[in-house]
Simulated assay, not measured.
Amino acid sequence: MTISLTLFGTTACHLCEECLQLTRPLEGNGVVVRQVDITEDPALMAQYELRIPVLRRDDTGAELDWPFGLGELLEWLADRLREEA
């Protein structure tokens, strides 16, 4: 089963790049991260401009705002990761 996440950010955001790099090790374990550039949508820009990077779980809509580490990310995904085991 796949865990789909959306990363809201911008191409010029170094924190967004850090967030993306943090998710990379999970991609081999069924986690898929789709990037959305908030500058391309005024509504997303208004919602996320001061919060990026933000990860959203596509299954629940839950959002995780930066800063967070791998431990927090794994805890946030724990319910789905347990289903996979």
Score class of each variant (00 low, 15 high):
L20K: 13
R57P: 11
V33P: 07
R34P: 11
G9W: 01
I3V: 04
A78K: 04
G71R: 08
L22T: 15
I38V: 02
E17Q: 13
E27Q: 11
T11E: 12
T60D: 12
T23D: 12
G30E: 08
H14I: 10
V33E: 15
T11N: 12
L26W: 02
E83I: 10
E49P: 01
Q21A: 07
P53A: 02
V54W: 01
T11W: 07
F68W: 01
P42C: 00
W66E: 00
E63C: 10
R51S: 14
E18R: 08
M45A: 07
T60Y: 05
G30V: 10
D37T: 03
F8Q: 01
E75Q: 13
W66T: 01
L44C: 02
A62R: 11
L81P: 04
P42V: 00
A85F: 08
V36E: 08
L70D: 06
A43M: 03
G28M: 06
Q21I: 07
T60F: 13
R34E: 10
G28T: 06
Q21F: 14
V33W: 14
T60C: 05
T6W: 01
C16N: 05
T23W: 14
L77P: 07
R82C: 10
C13Y: 08
L77S: 07
C16L: 12
D59M: 09
R57W: 05
H14F: 07
A46E: 05
T10D: 09
L50Q: 03
V36C: 11
D58G: 05
G30I: 08
T2P: 13
L50Y: 03
M45L: 11
A43P: 00
C13F: 03
L73W: 09
D79G: 06
A62H: 10
E75M: 14
A78T: 04
E49L: 03
L20H: 11
C16H: 04
R80H: 14
D58W: 11
A12Q: 05
P25Q: 04
L26N: 03
T6S: 10
L50K: 03
L81T: 05
T6F: 02
L7S: 14
L74I: 07
W66F: 02
R57T: 14
D65M: 07
S4G: 15
A12V: 14
F8N: 05
P25M: 10
V36L: 10
D41L: 00
G9N: 01
G9A: 03
A12S: 13
R82G: 12
S4Q: 11
E49N: 06
T2E: 09
A85T: 07
A85H: 15
Y48G: 00
A43F: 01
E84H: 07
I3F: 07
A46Q: 05
R24S: 14
E27K: 13
R80K: 15
